[in-house]
Design a protein around this nucleic acid. Sequence first.
DNA 1: CATGAATACGTGTATATACACTTAAATAAA
DNA 2: TTTATTTAAGTGTATATACACGTATTCATG
Lengths: 152, 152
Amino acid sequence: MKLEQAIQSTKFSSEVQKAGLNILYTAWWLKTVTSKELKEFGLTHEQYNVLRILKGSHPEQLCVKNIACRMIEKNSNVPRIIDRLELKKLVKRANSIEDKRETVISLTQSGIAILEATTARLNGKFDEIMVLSDEEGKTLNQLLEKVRTKEN
Amino acid sequence: MKLEQAIQSTKFSSEVQKAGLNILYTAWWLKTVTSKELKEFGLTHEQYNVLRILKGSHPEQLCVKNIACRMIEKNSNVPRIIDRLELKKLVKRANSIEDKRETVISLTQSGIAILEATTARLNGKFDEIMVLSDEEGKTLNQLLEKVRTKEN
DNA sequence: CATGAATACGTGTATATACACTTAAATAAA
DNA sequence: TTTATTTAAGTGTATATACACGTATTCATG
């Protein structure tokens, strides 16, 4: 569906401004589609993101701060996301030895299992819905990074 | 900042999968930057979106349903957003005459004023941060729409 | 016309987002 | 060494998101 139909608007002040709205809408769409898959595993987007990050450095543990700085959405309240994952026995908290301020987090066996099953499903869905060539993907990545040039 | 730095990950299974994460991250970034501007006017992203939609058909009123289907994020709880705008006297609710189930919403004078001021500021910020040529904007729009091809 | 289905809005709940604040621990400075 | 500053995690609050549900009204069907 074209953006014009999706948000029922035809007047954009420029292609660049339209691109801004298009990025926001596409992100919402992508989250919605993937959320449906995650829901079957009882996970939210953010919970999955935390598990995926932990897997990235497994079996090395990560402290809350180092999970937070790897999150896609930087304002995620990581301690609270971990609360929910801990309730489901997917991760475990432990006190850090080197720095007593830190809490280190590790994946449990069921955390690893649910992550693997979810990732397989999610990657399949990704391939199914995002029908782009490698070349197009590369161009898209370049343009998105150009959008964020003036990062501050 | 490159995506790799932003989420501190270098291993993506494909350019397309990376593009997915890039879209999510760029959307978060865009929302964060614009939120700072909106905050000076005491508005949230969603509240601004509702005002902008109302402006689009002004002075024609819109019912809640017709606002909802124009929102970028389709699951927005429009009645509740309107509650907050109404408290700030930026919009007004009225009962529909044709269909008693409907509530029609209109902008107040201060709603129009705050919208215009905010839009001017926001467009300025947009031009400042999104340094893309018209051609690049067009390509980006095409690619994003291709991403959403398999919409269902 | 009467009844069931669909629609529009609003409410309720769990989780997330954004951000300010608190507390404890570590580090830097006097 | 003592004090001040910074840092890490967690808590609190307002709003948003996602979704189920309730109520009133309208539409469709028998």
